[in-house]
Structures are given as structure tokens and as C-alpha cells.
């Protein structure tokens, strides 16, 4: 269980990214965070695995306070939290295999990585992870030779290598076309349903939110302005919608959301 309590983040330039944010995520949930660009979604996700240090507040994960964790504790926490990024963030010049194996770094000793070797078990695990997202035949290719969709699959495989208990997905499909978006979210959903991994995912399109989320929180200017269950989202009104996405927001087509300057 993840408990976020009174989380506040103020950047050194004075920007207030998160204001007193509190919420709880039960194990196995698929929680979607919605909100405009700059509403604090990315900051929130990065505070959870401490890629960004929060200014105030606590984050309790399975009872452990991550905000006060030391280097060693943090390593143990991070290796159980997989992360998927909007721009995939693969090490572009390394092979797909190496990228996937990187997911194992939290488990292997730094001395072993100096020699650059991973164990046979890790290699086999990597092949299984690649099988899961259907990129086994790309293993030898350089990461930047792959298409966007394939790169994001590598990103997911890398997260899988961590044997995660939670996956943080920061707009995982914002750089992909709608068809690919469903494929990628499908993989994440499959992991969520088959292994019970908790998922925290930020998304932009309402139809994707309606299709995948089991629960939704809406952020606006660093504050939670909406919280709802799957049913709530399916019946979401324009008023609630505007509250999250601002006055200029409107439904597009079958239910995408645009927020003025966004998209």
C-alpha cells in the first residue's frame, strides 16, 4: 500500500509543483493521474521513487517512509518500483538487451557491473521479459534503431526486470499514436492484472483513462481537484472535467481531453 501524506514540492526557482497532496493507493490498483501539463503529475510520480526529493510530507510504501530513506534503503525501494517514461529514456547507444538488463542493476553488486557482466539467470529473465512484450527478436539491435512503440516495450521490459511491486508510468503513451497507445497500455494492464502489480500512470486522453483506470485522481496546479472510481470516470461530467483541465477544456471526438495549450 502506498500512502502519500501532505506532499509538497517547491523547486529552487520558487515554482510550487505540488501543494499538500495526500492520497492512498491500494495494492493492485491501476491509478491514473490526470491533469494539464505542469500540473505536477511528473513531479508527483518522481517524488514516489525519489528521483525528485520532496520539500515536505511523507510517502509511506508498505509502511516504509521513502522520504527519509538512506542511500541503501532507497536502492531497495527503487528496485521494487519500475518506471516507464514518456520519452522511453532508453540508453540509446546500448543494445536492447543491455537496456533490459539495466533493470536488474538494483539487484547486482556494483563490483559486478564494473566488469560489465550479468548472470545467466538475468539474461534468461531478460529474454522472458522481452517475450512478454514481443521484442525478443530485437535483442541485439541498438535501442535507437527501434520505432517508438518498440522502444516503449523495451522500457516496459526493463521495468519488468525489476520484479516490481509497483510501476510508475509517466505519460507512457504521449509520444505514441492511438493504436500503439492501446498496445502499450494493454501490456501494462496485463502486468497489473496478472501479477497484481500496482500501477500509477499519468494520462492525457479521457478515453484511455476510461478504458484502463480503476481509480483516477486529477491534479491542477499541484493540488488534487478530483478523485474518482472507474464508474465516476465513466460518468464524468463536463463541469468536473473543466475543473481539472481549465475553462478552455473540451471533449474531443470520442472523449479525448485537450487543455487549451496542451496537445
Amino acid at each position: 500500500m502506498l500512502e502519500v501524506k501532505n506532499l509538497t514540492k517547491i523547486y529552487s526557482d520558487g515554482t510550487v509543483a505540488l501543494k499538500n497532496v495526500s492520497f492512498t493507493v491500494q495494492d493492485g490498483e491501476f491509478l491514473v493521474v490526470i491533469g494539464l501539463s505542469g500540473s505536477g503529475k511528473s513531479t508527483l510520480l518522481r517524488c514516489i521513487n525519489r528521483l525528485i526529493d520532496p520539500t515536505e510530507g511523507d510517502i509511506l510504501w508498505n509502511g516504509v517512509n521513502t522520504t527519509t530513506a538512506g542511500t541503501k534503503e532507497l536502492r531497495v525501494i527503487r528496485r521494487k518500483i519500475g518506471m516507464v517514461f514518456q520519452h522511453f529514456n532508453l540508453v540509446k547507444r546500448s543494445s536492447v538487451m543491455t537496456n533490459v538488463l539495466c533493470g536488474r542493476l538494483g539487484y547486482v553488486s556494483p563490483a559486478a557491473t564494473l566488469i560489465g557482466r550479468f548472470s545467466r539467470q538475468d539474461t534468461e529473465r531478460a529474454y522472458r521479459a522481452m517475450d512478454m512484450v514481443g521484442i525478443r527478436d530485437q535483442a541485439k539491435k541498438r535501442a535507437d534503431e527501434l520505432s517508438g512503440g518498440q522502444q516503449q516495450r523495451v522500457g516496459i521490459a526493463r521495468a519488468l526486470m525489476q520484479e516490481p511491486e509497483m510501476i510508475l508510468a509517466d505519460e507512457p503513451v504521449a509520444s505514441l499514436d492511438p493504436v500503439l497507445a492501446h498496445t502499450i497500455l494493454g501490456y501494462i494492464e496485463k502486468i497489473n492484472q496478472q501479477t497484481g502489480v500496482t500501477v500509477l500512470c499519468s494520462l492525457h486522453y479521457l478515453d484511455l483513462v476510461q478504458r484502463y483506470a480503476t481509480r483516477v485522481i486529477g491534479l491542477k496546479a499541484g493540488e488534487i481537484v478530483y478523485e474518482g472510481t472507474k464508474n465516476d470516470i465513466l460518468n464524468m461530467t463536463d463541469t468536473q472535467f473543466k475543473e481539472i483541465y481549465g475553462e478552455e477544456a473540451q471533449r474531443v471526438g470520442t472523449g479525448s481531453i485537450t487543455g487549451g495549450t496542451q496537445l
Binding site: 532507497l74 536502492r75 531497495v76 527503487r78 528496485r79 519500475g82 518506471m83 539495466c102 538494483g106 522500457g155
Partner: peptide, 8 residues
Amino acid sequence: AVQATGAT
């Protein structure tokens, strides 16, 4: 991304 995996 590499930091997020728990790498030192």
C-alpha cells in the same frame, strides 16, 4: 531511467 532501477 537508470537511477530509477535502483542503480548506485
